[in-house]
């Protein structure tokens, strides 16, 4: 499996898709921070928070993460490189696990701009706000900005970052069976994004129905 992971990391390093997605998340992270800063400063209408949320990590990852999973795994079916791995004696299970590991490495890579932007933003000591829509790194920005830059804040940031990575990884793990079943990146992205939106709506029922509460407490959504 180590060989498979090495090979897939090499392949991902050569892929322009990951680089483009990294560029998109870098751009989005900056836009998110700038908008949160301007809203806090009163230079931007708080009603724009909804648009700001579109650039947040939680929204971007649910699309771009699925794009990576789709392109990365479905691409292997398209160009039959996955067949070569099977034919040279790798088990299907190890191929799947290695794909998952490399997918999560890619996830961390495209999340990096959000982590870096959040660290830089918090270091400035300025106030950031995205109102009630702040989730993920946007939430850290909203909650922790303006407070004294202390070690405890960065420790909190580190823990939150790790937790978020685990949550995103768990959410995106759904893309792996989708990619194996559908074998088409467009379908993977569409179905996964549809599911995330659906779950986002259903989570509102958590307070009304204890059943949903118990179901969602076991899920990364």
């Amino acid at each position: 499996m180590y060989n498979l992971i090495r090979a897939d990391l090499f392949k991902m390093g050569k892929s322009s898709v990951v680089k483009v997605l990294f560029g998109i998340t870098s751009f989005s992270a900056v836009i998110m921070a700038v908008m949160a800063y301007m809203i806090a400063k009163g230079k931007l209408d708080p009603g724009m928070a909804g648009i700001g949320f579109m650039f947040s990590d939680i929204d971007m990852i649910s699309i771009l993460g699925a794009v990576i999973a789709g392109v990365f795994i479905c691409g292997d079916f398209d160009n039959k490189t996955i067949h070569d791995a099977v034919a040279c004696g790798c088990s299907r299970g190890s191929i799947l696990v290695s794909k998952a590991i490399v997918l999560f490495c890619a996830l961390i890579f495209i999340l990096l701009p959000y982590i870096i932007t959040t660290v830089i933003a918090l270091s400035t000591g300025s106030k950031f706000s995205m109102g009630s829509v702040g989730v993920g790194f946007l939430n850290i920005l909203t909650q922790e900005s303006g407070t004294a830059c202390m070690a405890s804040v960065f420790f909190k940031l580190l823990i939150t970052t790790l937790t978020l990575i685990i949550v995103y990884a768990a959410q995106l793990s759904l893309c792996i069976p989708f990619a194996v079943i559908f074998k088409k990146p467009v379908l993977v992205v569409a179905v996964y994004y549809g599911i995330t939106i659906l779950f986002a709506q259903i989570t509102r029922l958590r307070n009304s129905f204890p059943m949903f509460e118990s179901i969602f407490s076991c899920m990364p959504f």
Binding site: S16, N79, K80, T81, A87, C88
Partner: peptide, 13 residues
């Protein structure tokens, strides 16, 4: 064993 079945498994980029 080594094989090339149907068409070669190449990464286009």
């Amino acid at each position: 064993l080594g094989c090339m079945i149907e068409y070669p498994g190449l990464i286009p980029y």
